[in-house]
Amino acid sequence: MMERIAVGTRFTKRGQWGWVSRYNQRPDMPDTGCVQELILVGLSTRVLAESAVRGGIRTTAIDLFADLDTREAAHCIAVPSLLEGHLIAAIERAFPGNSSPQLVYASGIDTDPDLVRSLSQTVDLIGNPAGVLQTINSPDRFFALLDSLSIPYPESCFHKPANPGDWVVKLAGTQGGTGVFSASHNIPVGAVCYYQKRLPGPSLSALFLANGQDARVIGFNTQWNDRLDPLSPYRLSGIVNHAAITYEQKKQLGEYIAKLVKSASLVGLGTLDFMIEDGCCKVLEVNPRPSASMALFDERYPAGLLNEHIRAVAGCLGPEVRQDGRALGGFQIVYANQTGVIGDSLVWPVWVKDRPAPGSRISIDDPLCTVTAKGDSIVAVRELLAKRGQLIGASCFA
């Protein structure tokens, strides 16, 4: 597949190969003194690439979309999948010879410890190693870890409950809610899954930095799903960087994260997803890599959160950054309600991210773009996001 990558090729369709642009570091950018050039790999690398710009780090971004935002921030390669062969070919083309480039992975990579182990033979990974990922992503090992640390989680089991009405089934190795279904859903034979009691209330998360021994909680988020796609009723729709929880609950979550970091040797950026039942925070899962929610806090760090991730993996946690007194921010993924082609003359509003290139063909229910908004409350932010999502969804096809 390597011969299909050519410098200067214009990328016009999602999922095809092609070099699409080069970002050159500007002289006015801060020198982090940490990493000068980096590979970013994941389903989408836009958030990491933009954080890299803040930190003055040149990046080669390898993902499935190569959207306009990523092209503006990085030397960008689109791959047809995150299979090992496609990734290795792209890495070797971008960094030929015997060099050992450094790589940060995002969503879509951490759920495959074998892939991470294989990549580590080619690149210098900046993130959690395969062994840590196996512990966090294996349901039986993860629940055993929670039990050993006396960290509560919703009632769970590995067999279909007799009365599944109040339960969901979760496929291991999935993310963004795409592998969560009603417990009555038919699961493919041989699939690794578990059943969990459904809790009322919103899904919440805590973004944190860790160095294997200690942790810093960056902030808390409220998440939601649109439930518009019957094939994926729990897929992530949006996030706001605020959660209506008490000081005691924040303290409780900080203790959970500290225990998990030390016990599992977690490093770098990560998120802990949780819900609240009868005032008690109950852990759903840990995402042991930079998440999309980092975009909602990145501007609060002068050199960006990607730089903080790199430093944390190396063992250094910076000072806490005060998060109070700022407007709330959020984003919402817009899923296409029809199949179409992005027009050549479309002018995107400034509050749109993950903009597909002109000529990109988008299938129904695929991610179309991301809308952003700020406001003084979760309700205000969500209302503005919904309004912008409806507006952009009806106007972007040729």
Rank of each mutant, 00 (worst) to 15 (best):
Q175A: 13
Q390R: 12
K160M: 14
I378C: 08
I362Y: 09
D344G: 05
E383K: 13
R93F: 11
T135C: 10
V189L: 13
A210P: 07
G304H: 01
A162P: 05
I364L: 13
G375L: 11
R4T: 01
L228E: 15
L207C: 05
E320Y: 09
T32V: 12
V123S: 12
G325V: 10
G15C: 09
G375E: 06
A303R: 14
G176M: 05
P290W: 00
G325Q: 05
L368N: 02
A94G: 02
T45H: 02
L296F: 11
P367A: 00
G359T: 04
R198K: 13
A49Q: 08
Q338F: 00
G219F: 04
Q332P: 03
Y153K: 08
P27K: 07
P129M: 14
S100K: 15
L204W: 11
L260P: 11
G176F: 04
F95I: 00
R235Q: 15
R289G: 01
W224H: 05
L171Y: 10
L207E: 04
Q338H: 08
V47D: 06
Y335I: 09
G55N: 09
P358Y: 01
G270L: 08
G127L: 09
D214P: 01
H75F: 10
S293G: 02
L284N: 10
P129F: 14
S291P: 13
L306A: 14
A336K: 02
H159Q: 15
H86F: 00
K374W: 08
V189S: 12
E37Q: 12
N128V: 09
V381L: 14
G179K: 04
G190F: 15
